[in-house]
Computed example of a mutant assay.
Amino acid sequence: MKEIKSIVNAYHSHSERAALATVVRVEGSSYRRTGARMLVFETGVWVGGISGGCLEGDALKRAKMAILKDSPSLVTYDTTTDDDHQIGVGLGCNGIIDVLFVPIDKTDSHNPIKLLEDTLHFPEQNHILITITKAPENAKNLLGKIFRYNKAPDLKPLSGYSDLETLAKSIENLEKSKNLFFENGLNVYVELVPKPIKVYIFGNQYDLYPLADLVLSLGWDLFIVSEKSKIKEQLKSHVLEDFKPEMLDKNSAILLMSHSLNTDKANLKSTLPLNLPYIGMLGPRVRAEKIWHELEQEGAEVNTQNIFAPVGLDIGATTPDEIALSIVSEIKMVFANRSGEHLRNRPLPIHDREQPMIFK
């Protein structure tokens, strides 16, 4: 989401023509995955990225060509071959990356940047963007078309290629972005743009500031539950004085760090019934157990499965900045459904391998 924000901001701050480069398919290994983007202006200024830096040079040329020709194109980078003429050869990534280059028409209210901007205006919901990455000879004008999906009628651009009701059900059941291949030569990238993680910090002590900075640097949404007068000026806009538990959802992580046992206990009690995926409690385990025990004596049902106390991963953190790093890493681990172990001990690839869906 942070990259989308940067691209949208750059789009509005530059007047020259531009093209959007998007990774729409990855086979094997790559530094970035599908959905990675870079916005390139005709002056050569660019924002975002599609790789670790190895493909950006060629991507700049391809984007400028898309602007010049005012025509989209799909480029395949193959780092698995020994062809010296192939961009990216010798990198050792051993992957195939399809990148779609689409010139941006600023007069089009539904251009790709505008669609991305819409996802920022409605952060409380997930979004589905559909991009046509390959079109048959008799429908070349479809290449590069991007539209947002909400319900079956939105798939009208794909009519004639598949039964739209069946296709709609398949899209709605997807749990992550996926490529759809149609036997008649049409390829579609269905991108799920998730809601950003929302972090609620209950507290107003000095140790919230490095944590808040790190949360914001990741592009997550930050809410500080406190009296505004107790928070420094740079974070006052994130203060939530009228907090209500019903504001929380399955995309929320809460951190109880008021340094007051009774305050943390009250806040935990109000949020326990919501069964949130992540509740972090600052302080030693014995403190957390005392709170749990008191709540149980008062009749509350305490399920500690989703309570992380002491909060954070075991990285030897001692300073507020290091503790913030351990907390944010743990939040990411939970929401990504990962173990937090060393990647070198992971028997599977770092990223899940995508299997495209084939439609008749």
Rank of each mutant, 00 (worst) to 15 (best):
residue 34 T to M: 11
residue 198 K to D: 11
residue 158 L to S: 14
residue 18 A to Y: 02
residue 265 K to F: 00
residue 146 I to A: 11
residue 83 D to P: 08
residue 324 A to V: 02
residue 66 A to E: 07
residue 107 T to D: 14
residue 44 G to K: 12
residue 29 S to P: 06
residue 50 I to R: 10
residue 310 P to L: 01
residue 93 C to H: 06
residue 147 F to Q: 14
residue 202 F to L: 05
residue 81 T to V: 14
residue 325 L to K: 05
residue 345 N to I: 04
residue 157 P to I: 12
residue 31 Y to D: 04
residue 245 P to R: 05
residue 145 K to N: 14
residue 283 G to C: 03
residue 132 I to R: 11
residue 35 G to H: 01
residue 197 I to D: 03
residue 338 R to S: 09
residue 96 I to P: 07
residue 7 I to M: 02
residue 196 P to V: 02
residue 178 K to F: 01
residue 270 S to T: 12
residue 8 V to E: 04
residue 222 L to Y: 10
residue 327 I to N: 02
residue 125 Q to D: 13
residue 21 A to K: 04
residue 68 L to A: 15
residue 353 R to H: 12
residue 226 S to I: 03
residue 355 Q to S: 14
residue 10 A to G: 01
residue 35 G to W: 03
residue 325 L to G: 01
residue 188 V to L: 10
residue 129 L to H: 10
residue 6 S to T: 11
residue 162 S to V: 14
residue 229 S to K: 14
residue 319 T to P: 00
residue 70 D to N: 13
residue 357 M to V: 15
residue 282 L to R: 03
residue 288 A to G: 09
residue 20 L to T: 06
residue 101 F to G: 08
residue 9 N to V: 10
residue 150 N to M: 05
residue 107 T to N: 15
residue 93 C to F: 02
residue 203 G to D: 04
residue 18 A to K: 07
residue 170 S to V: 12
residue 98 D to L: 02
residue 212 A to I: 09
residue 230 K to P: 11
residue 151 K to A: 15
residue 216 L to I: 13
residue 95 G to T: 14
residue 86 Q to I: 01
